[in-house]
Design a binder for these strands. Structure first.
Lengths: 130, 130
DNA sequence: AATAATAATAGGAATTATTACTAAAAGGAG
DNA sequence: CTCCTTTTAGTAATAATTCCTATTATTATT
């Protein structure tokens, strides 16, 4: 465990989760200004491989990293991009039943309009002057 | 419907599905050598928006495009990258029940070892000389 | 059919996210 | 402390995709 890796780890543990590599890089830089982007990427990949953190892949946006390693999925607002956790009990079984071969991993991403953006969209389309 | 768009459409319809933008570009170029990559990308995005085709996003590999617009999911071999369709009846309901807000779209991608690659892995690890 | 207005294209530059490379620094075993 | 391995910082390179612009095609209008 190098000092750099500890800083990265602390940034992720000190957050609410769902940070991008870039966000982690800038937060880590506050604690250790000499840290380099390559180091952040390499450590994030290593930590994902070791299942210390989870890599979240969302189509059309950069990868996010989650301190929560308990299986769960994510919903992503189509407008603002904000991520929220969502539990889908039964998804694992559903997949196991449908796929005969051994599953290595799976990832589900759901696009929706978050309450904030949905409210904004309503007022905009509802008002007289668009 | 421009000539270019028709060529792109024909390439996709003439395939088994699951082509990348690059593959579509090169196949389209055979029928229309002047076609440009930007045109292919733009038309694929338009056609996806109009739901004439489906964009398949797989973490770690370029987008693929599918002529099959009936809801279904994909399994991707972790070794060779080959894509196969998989039906997951009940997934839509599972998501609807878990997410209170309106869902715009969702996509599931499953990583596994395809039969061919699994066989290769077995003979390699099983033999005396690795 | 000629002309004007609009939309789409080809070709290339630019962007984004990420990985690869390399020389220097750090860390550990003996 | 010295040798050996690992990791780092910094930079260059890559991959996929988007953006830009002058040109070309298409459509509408007269």
């Amino acid at each position: 465990m190098t000092a750099q890796r500890k800083v990265i780890r602390d940034v992720i543990w000190g957050s609410d989760g769902h940070l991008t590599s870039e966000q982690i890089y800038f937060l880590a830089k506050e604690k250790m200004p000499s840290i380099s982007l390559g180091t952040v990427y390499r450590n994030l990949s290593l930590m994902s491989d070791e299942k210390e953190i989870t890599r979240i892949s969302i189509p059309g946006s950069p990868d996010h990293f989650d301190k929560n390693t308990v299986p769960h999925q994510h919903i992503c607002c189509a407008k603002c991009g904000r991520l929220e956790d969502v539990e889908l009990p039964g998804l694992g079984d559903l997949i196991k039943n449908a796929v005969s071969a051994d599953v290595i991993s799976y990832s589900l991403s759901i696009k929706y309009l978050c309450p904030d953006c949905a409210a904004k969209a309503r007022t905009e389309s509802g008002s007289d002057r668009p």
